[in-house]
Design a protein around this nucleic acid. Structure first.
Lengths: 342, 342
DNA sequence: ATAAAATGCGCAATCGATTGCACTTTTATT
DNA sequence: AATAAAAGTGCAATCGATTGCGCATTTTAT
């Protein structure tokens, strides 16, 4: 920060031979200050290039007007959509938004969250990192009654507002769709099971198998970090089985894409030999060939709901919480449309 | 922010019957405080759940240890890569990073930049919005000697560190490549010409035509916002020409993709009938069919350089500036490889 | 003309952390 | 033992904005 002196309200006060409190009140449109005085003050402030020091006012007010958003990865389309939705609502309500990314690392998340606390954010909107399995750094928000909202990846043991997607129904519908397409051995690439999102998707998958009288086979479920690389490793493992799957329900579009590329390079036809379904509807899923069947999550809307919830917590003292479950949409494309080929 | 009382250094001081200044010094490992006193203080702080109020210390120190990053759009892979690179360097150097997006709107950018100023960021890293054509909100940073670094989209009239990509060379190489592939009427979808990035790419394109003795035809250059929708509109316009192009150099991969989809749906063969080249190497460009020839920009590295520059400005009083030009890489894929087909 | 109400403004304290300088205690040197 | 130096700590001011309460002046009502 600049070490030269920045004009303060005291400089304005001195110029007009009035008190600093009058300057402050005028700049904040306090009705107790006359219009004449106010306009003189604002004119001097403008000509001096005065800029309020938000640090000072925030310290005095014990309120920063700032909402923190922590996402696992900024470059994931879903998370950037949530950010845009949240930011839209927050900005319109007069809040600043500061965004940080945890890179899906627990330690980074802890550091970020503590920094946001120290900077006295008015509230925190967070989707936890994949590696996070202890929550003291978040429990402190609840303990000190600081507004906290989880989105997508929530923490069951912390009671607060949660905006989630119906992952169970998503997993169920994907699996049902694959069954309807005549696939008989459906594998599932699941993310880490300490995240409810991946746990619920898997449970939906298992329930759909059960409902259709298909026995659940443990070897058809692979749990990993859902990166491109691990997607390939998982597919290799599945195809090496004595009885390989004829469909794969991937936990995200990234692994669906890399699975598809790998299989296509092996001469396996999609969707004839193997059906592929992803999750999250990344923009590329519509345009690759074959286009990927996926579950669309309403990212922007989720962000909006999260911002509305956090603002409600901030502006009211209400401490009744709700979990908002947003519906998912199954988007059927080429990668799983085997019956359309026959 | 919580209205219940949060422990302060005064609470710790009172508990140990010492002064608050000793508490502050102990918590900051000041050598003037004995180890015995320090450990007693830290133990009480821990048991009280004391958290420093960064607002207060930042106000006192006139230093926030925070770097602001403003990008046009978070969900653009290039920008999120830059953020990751910058954040990596900044985090390791002990700086907090706050990120905001302008949504490519001038007014939003002004509001964000002013808010960052009021929050007394130690420095600002920014890529300006497409609509930005006046720069008073940024000139104030130079005027007050607050560290400022432009990346990708720089402002020529503001003298400071700039980390840019060699857009001229990028445009030139794309065009040369298309010429080498035997394309003879090359169109260019250019972004707004008040951004140097798009201006330079167009100039590179024009220079390559000139070098190869191909006359420049104004009707083959379309200037728009480079959205998917405007990409389609532009391609419609080009194909309606009396003498339509046989190649299109698009200002980004997004318009390249939408142009390609549109043309494919019209039965036009890529790259046989028309070659397509994008810019920015979005992740999808490798996997779509046909894969898109594009220019790769080193986003992560750019972010790292930007962070190194801003930190140098912050930590030294040095005010000699440089423009770092990072090379681009032409990545030849299917969409422009006509000779490979013959 | 007088009293009451409204308007406009200033003083001083607050917010929570940091730090210069002075003072006291402890340790080292003569 | 006396003196000087080093170590350890506290007081008070600072940072810049906000605001409760009191006071003075102006306006309105009687």
């Amino acid at each position: 920060m600049i070490k030269n002196s920045e004009p303060t309200i005291h400089d304005i006060a001195r110029e007009l031979k009035i008190s600093a409190s009058t300057v402050s009140r005028a700049l904040n449109d306090n009705p107790r200050i006359s219009l004449k005085t106010k306009e003189k003050i604002k004119a001097i402030a403008l000509s001096m290039g005065y800029r309020p020091n938000t640090l000072a006012s925030n310290l005095r007010n014990k309120k920063s007007n700032t909402i923190g958003i922590v996402v696992p990865l900024i470059n994931r389309y879903f998370f950037s959509s949530v950010i845009s939705g949240a930011e839209d609502v927050a900005f319109k309500a007069g809040y600043n938004v500061v965004i940080s990314q945890s890179n899906d690392l627990a330690a980074k998340e802890i550091s970020i969250v503590q920094s946001m606390f120290s900077n006295r954010v008015d509230g925190l909107i967070i989707s936890i990192a994949m590696q996070t399995n202890t929550f003291e750094h978040l429990k402190i928000f609840r303990k000190k009654n600081i507004p906290l909202v989880f989105f997508d990846r929530a923490v069951p043991e912390i009671e607060t507002d949660k905006i989630v997607v119906d992952d169970f129904a998503g997993g169920f519908r994907v699996t049902q769709h694959l069954i309807d397409q005549g696939y008989q051995r459906i594998a599932h690439l699941a993310g880490t099971q300490n995240l409810m999102t991946y746990f619920d998707r898997k449970n939906g998958y298992i329930e759909a198998l059960r409902k259709n009288g298909i026995p659940f086979d443990e070897s058809l479920v692979i749990i990993n970090s859902l990166t491109s690389e691990e997607g390939i490793t998982a597919v290799q493992q599945l195809m090496a089985l004595k009885n390989p799957p004829d469909a794969i329900f991937c936990g995200n579009d990234t692994t669906a894409l890399s699975a598809m590329i790998y299989l296509r390079d092996k001469g396996i036809r999609i969707p004839l030999d193997i059906g592929i379904v992803g999750f999250s509807n990344e923009p590329f899923s519509k345009v690759v060939s074959p286009s990927i069947t996926t579950i669309a999550q309403p990212g922007f809307q989720m962000g909006q709901k999260a911002a509305e919830s956090i603002i409600r917590q901030i502006e009211t003292k209400e401490r009744t919480f709700q979990t908002i479950v947003l519906p998912t949409e199954l988007i059927i494309r080429e990668s799983s449309s085997r019956r359309s080929f026959q």
